[in-house]
Design a protein around this nucleic acid. Structure first.
Lengths: 141, 141
DNA sequence: CTTTGTGCAAACGATTTGCAGGATG
DNA sequence: CATCCTGCAAATCGTTTGCACAAAG
């Protein structure tokens, strides 16, 4: 619950995956864990270096790649030419607002489980992408 | 049914969308209509220029952009850094084989319609991405 | 100490753009 | 014949890589 604890949780997750805990890598992952907006590399970098330079662009890229390789972060592809990252690796769906571009997580249990048995393929996972207008952009709320 | 007819269908679709019918644009769209494999720009270009040079890279890009703008083709984003194109603009889902990378269309009615009413957003469309092994890669078939 | 990570700048690859000439309606 | 398209090459943008130095375990 305390800040100490959150730090330890992140450190332990990195260690448990066999990743060395460096300030830059920690900062990238901690930043990603603290947000829910599926940021781009550019947004992460700007955030990290806001107060004073913590990491370089190349290191953010390689950190994200390392985190992705061990399954601590996922890449989210919803728009052309835009790679976003997500520290929420639990199965969930995505909503993409066509007006403001925001991306919202949609709970896994929003949909009754699908019957994928009758497909001529071996389905291992699936995800739903929903597009439309978010709460802010509809004016309702 | 005849080749003449298919050509006319494509010409008429372009015209009806207010697009000029140029050999390059026709070739790009006709090629896309003739395949079901969601090719990349590179694959389209290679195919067009196989016998003798028909179009340049830049023109394929701009043709696809024009076709996309009028709703005759859709972009398919399933892998990082790979833009694929699809002349099937009817609603459907996608299956992506993790082994051979092939992409298959999955019929819209595979899933019972979802109840998106209880989301706090205005859902206008959705699509399902399924990942796994295709028929060839499972060995069943 | 050995291995791995970082920063910088250069390299890269996909996509876009500016421009002059050419084709379309 | 006015408008839009094409081809080419240069520009651009996001991402990756090589290398020398620094830090982690």
């Amino acid at each position: 619950m305390s800040k100490e604890n959150q730090r330890d949780v992140i450190v332990n997750r990195l260690k448990s995956k066999g990743l060395r805990v460096t300030p830059q890598r920690f900062a990238v992952y901690a930043n990603l864990c603290s947000r829910r907006d599926h940021p781009t590399v550019e947004q992460i970098l700007k955030d990290l270096n806001q107060d004073f330079p913590i990491s370089s662009q190349a290191t953010v890229y390689t950190s994200l790649q390392a985190l992705r390789k061990v399954g601590l972060v996922k890449e989210v592809l919803l728009e052309e030419g835009v790679s976003r990252y997500d520290a929420n690796v639990e199965p969930h769906h995505h909503f993409h607002c066509r007006q403001c571009g925001s991306i919202k997580d949609v709970p896994w249990d929003t949909f009754d489980s699908f019957n994928l048995e009758h497909l001529p393929y071996l389905a291992e996972s699936y995800e739903v992408t929903i597009r439309g207008l978010c709460d802010r952009c509809t004016g309702n709320n």
